[in-house]
Design a protein around this nucleic acid. Structure first.
Lengths: 345, 345
DNA sequence: TTGAAAGCGCTAACAA
DNA sequence: TTGTTAGCGCTTTCAA
């Protein structure tokens, strides 16, 4: 295993100094063409590749971004990571993936080690570390950006790229109400759609505006997973057999609810309509395909990356540069008009 | 935004030199306790955090690993990344995720930029860049390890952590044959189970050993996705309506096949058995839950990480340290005994 | 037990 | 247009 070739060696080989080689590589227009050729020949001949660690130290800034998320096995995140990584690559950055396993100490340890040193900026997806604490870390010399945070828990001191969750919930409510549903249940994800969440608020408010009683909205909280949705839906349907529709605060739970309905002998969508939120890839791959409200995941990812890099590099973006599109209703096969008499489960 | 605190500032504050602070942080036993206390107090007071970029440059080695994979939206990878990241973290390393989008030029660009500089080692999952080319890169000063490569395409010059694919295929064949299936079709993933793949070979050889004619095995190639499996299965079932079982070279395609069967009016498993390979999380979340052959994903990930770090740090591991467990059959609800007369689709 | 000094590979003023 | 020089923040001999 050969040692890596350094700038100095290339310089010696091309009979110039390291500074010139550096210039050839970075500002070739400032160097005489003949010299450029000679240096490039040496670069190729020796197989020189710049040491990005050294460059980062000299420049005072690395070219890596970190993305902190709770658990990459939630299918939303791979979709997000895919986009974020592509966006980072377009900007010449690399992406460090930091999985916190929903554990605030892991999150803190990561921030402590990488923020401002290994990673020039950190994009923090909704996490158990408070926005205020994050703002404190940012104040000590690192670039942080929040992403997909919901509700009032964010901090004025930190930029935040997020969707209009309330609008998403509202679209779901309008769709269900528009189909004539009146007896609607809700599946609330522990990590995504608790009682305080904007998506639930948007949903409930819109239902109420339509004259549907939401005082005693049948609801069950559950893990953000297919199994979680399955179990919660079974419980909910058993307790409230006359429900004609279910709203889940994310797609995984909605998918679980569809399976639960099937196991209760209910046909989706004829006996029960189910709607989710997010529009992960799986939503259209399941049968019946899931009606859901689509989040602009790709936009969010690339905006979060662009915003973070703009801050790292000290650019002020123009107004509206970070504008996130609104969520949109995607009607598929898991919702249908309400029928008068719902079959029993 | 304050600048980051440096070692020198801590040193000044504690009235020692940078060397001593460094020692306190790394080999506290070599420093007088009173000094340790004084330095640690300064560290806390100033909120000092070591600059890992500078440390990496001084040590001549970073503490990041890179994981290169084709497309993280294939659900196998997030499961793998989760484990790899945890393993890396246990060893004090970070994980850079490099998504190549099945594009060899992106893969090369990544390797060119990070191997040996930003990342001390790179774990390369099955990719379009040839093992020989990778071996050439490794020879020029970087630590590379292959992971989950199938078949003879690996290189003697590079370590490779992988599963016994042929055994996995064989287990699937035994299960189907044991259930009495004779008319079996195969769904071959383009990225995972082509005609030359070991998993198919293991499957076919075992079928042949059981006296089943595999000369004209009905097979269709398809993308490694639910949709791919769906379409291929529809085509295959239309062309060969008497098939009683389907083997898919990965779980996603198997899941698609189950949906295709349903849309053809065939009940899984009564009218058609379907078996997959890998055992991704989704396999047991689908209905019917998928019978499959489980790969030891977590072991593979942590072994690949450990092996790579051992190489980076120049350790020789003991024999068998990198031994990957065998794949195992997981029987769920998508397979059943063959019936004499298969219904038509 | 602590300090001085050199150096990791690169960048960036500034000088020539 | 090219070279000189001085760092970036840290580690690591080696000497005191």
């Amino acid at each position: 295993m050969l040692p890596m070739v350094t700038l100095a060696e290339v310089a010696r080989h091309a009979q110039v100094t390291a500074a010139t080689v550096s210039n050839v590589l970075r500002n070739p227009q400032k160097v005489r063409p003949a010299t450029v050729d000679r240096v490039m020949a040496a670069v190729r001949e020796l197989g020189y590749r710049p040491n990005l660690t050294a460059r980062a130290l000299a420049e005072g800034r690395t070219s890596t971004l970190a993305l902190m998320l709770s658990n990459i096995s939630n299918p939303f995140y791979p979709e997000f990571v895919l986009e974020a990584e592509a966006a980072a690559r377009r900007h010449g950055y690399f992406l460090l993936v930091c999985n916190t396993d929903d554990n605030p100490s892991i999150a803190r340890a990561y921030l402590d080690r990488i923020a401002g040193t290994l990673a020039a900026g950190v994009i923090v997806m909704n996490t158990d570390v408070s926005a205020d604490e994050l703002a404190g870390i940012a104040a000590r010399g690192s670039t942080l950006a929040l992403c997909m945070w919901e509700g009032a828990r964010t901090s004025r001191a930190l930029p935040c790229v997020t969707v209009d969750y309330a609008h998403a919930g509202s679209l779901a409510a309008e769709h269900l109400a528009g189909l004539g549903h009146r007896r609607i249940g809700a599946l609330l994800g522990e990590g995504s759609g608790g009682p305080q969440s904007l998506r639930l608020k948007g949903f409930v408010d819109t239902l109420a505006a339509r004259g549907i009683d939401t005082e005693a909205l049948p609801a069950a909280s559950c893990r953000d997973s297919i199994e979680g949705g399955y179990e919660a839906a079974r419980t909910l349907l058993a307790a409230h057999p006359r429900l004609t529709a279910l709203f889940a605060t994310n797609d995984l739970m909605a998918l679980g609810a569809i399976q639960a309905a099937a196991d209760c002998g209910r046909h989706v969508p004829h006996d029960l309509s189910v709607i989710g939120l997010t529009n992960i890839h799986l939503a259209h791959q399941f049968r019946p395909a899931l009606t859901t409200v689509s989040f602009p995941t790709a936009s969010i990812a690339s905006i979060a990356v662009a915003l973070t890099i703009d801050r790292i590099e000290g650019r002020k973006a123009k107004r509206d540069a970070y504008k996130v599109p609104l969520p949109e209703l995607v009607i598929r096969d898991s919702t249908a008009p309400a029928v008068r008499t719902a079959r029993r489960g």
